[in-house]
Write a protein that binds this DNA or RNA. Structure first.
Lengths: 209, 209
DNA sequence: CTATTTTCCGCACGAACGTTCGTGCTTGCC
DNA sequence: GGCAAGCACGAACGTTCGTGCGGAAAATAG
């Protein structure tokens, strides 16, 4: 009845490598022949895992999202809601970018810039992931506000927009001019932006080392 | 001695269209066959203008830089140095992005993200253009400071980093989620960032309509 | 006018692309 | 042990990529 099962471990390895390549060359620059060559398996063998290039691209986006969650989101969830979590979310992102978890910097920054101009399912997946991230940051800020750790008038969406802007700028500058100081710039910008919004009794405690 | 002259007007038209395509699909997504087809001339005819794809890419970057200067830099130079010029520089950039002077948003944002991961002459050209822009913004801020319109401790490079971060984030968000409000977000962020730095007698005058 | 020079086109090349096909080989079921 | 299911492979498909070549059209020089 049933023949050989698909090697799920190999599939993970393929997608990990695919995400690495895409973070450098984009999801269009990712080629089935090149990827299979690097991994030492046949072109059609790898192709069989996905059935089409578009499906490979979509699977790569999902795999990268998983890594992103592990690397950025989960560390931040290890501390209680509030300003501390907001800061840790930003700092985890900067560390994730700076450590080059993907060799081309943040995977989603690269592919978002690549697909923002065209239509299609891949673009939709990337846009959805990006929106999830923006909402998570905004929600985390809003939680801190409702806990009384941010002054009342704080606009969570606006603040999220600005913090993400700093992070992505650091990613971009550090890659393009390999200027590691960009990450310190971003950290300074984030702290300077948040400091005047913090209510008195939390003013000194939310920043970790 | 001399035969038929190269049609310089055609060359400009080619590069204008090339920049449009590259702003959407990147400089690698730009293909000689596709470009020549759209313009109604032969592949080898277009090829003859540049001699190689890399040269076409470099020429496209130069042409896009010229458009960027006309569209963003020159409007800002029409007002005297100071905070007014800093603001106009930012606002011109946002208008340039928002008006879709290039259909894929800011040309340099797209190609910078595309090439930040790899080596080569095109990457160097893009990085140089990006650096020129960052230096121009920082320099314009520094001029305002030396004119006494910004408080003494202002770090021009840091401020330039932050303002550019806001602009690029607006470009990216508006394209990916076609959310036009991103530009208002950026304007609000820029003004909020600069307001506390302005010295008293210039506090109300630097923002135009 | 002819002669010369350079552009521009049609055509073809080799390489790489995504994709399909047919063939063994590995696996689980009877 | 034999059978059938299905994965991985090599080879080839048609298309598109960037790039070279030869000849026709065109514009200047004499």
């Amino acid at each position: 009845m049933v023949g050989r099962p698909r090697d799920e471990q190999a599939r993970s390895l393929i997608l990990r490598r695919a995400a690495d390549i895409a973070s450098r060359n984009g999801l269009e620059g990712l080629s089935i022949g090149g990827l299979s060559g690097e991994l030492g398996l046949s072109k059609s063998g790898l192709f069989g895992y996905f059935g089409s290039k578009e499906e490979l691209q979509l699977a790569t986006v999902r795999a990268a999202a998983q890594i992103f969650i592990t690397e950025v989101v989960q560390p931040a969830l290890s501390v209680p809601p509030g300003l501390g979590r907001v800061w840790l979310l930003c700092d985890s992102w900067l560390i994730y970018s700076q450590r080059r978890v993907f060799p081309g910097g943040c995977f989603f920054f690269t592919v978002a810039a690549e697909f923002e101009g065209r239509p299609g399912r891949v673009r939709d997946a990337v846009a959805a992931a990006s929106l999830d991230w923006r909402r998570l940051v905004a929600r985390t800020i809003e939680d801190a506000r409702q806990l009384g750790q941010l002054i009342e008038g704080t606009d969570a969406d606006q603040l999220a927009f600005e913090l993400i802007a700093f992070m992505e700028a650091a990613n971009s500058v550090s890659l393009l001019h390999d200027e590691a100081g960009a990450y310190q710039r971003a950290r300074a910008a984030i702290q300077a932006r948040m400091r005047p919004l913090a209510t008195g009794h939390t003013a000194l405690s939310w920043i970790s080392s």
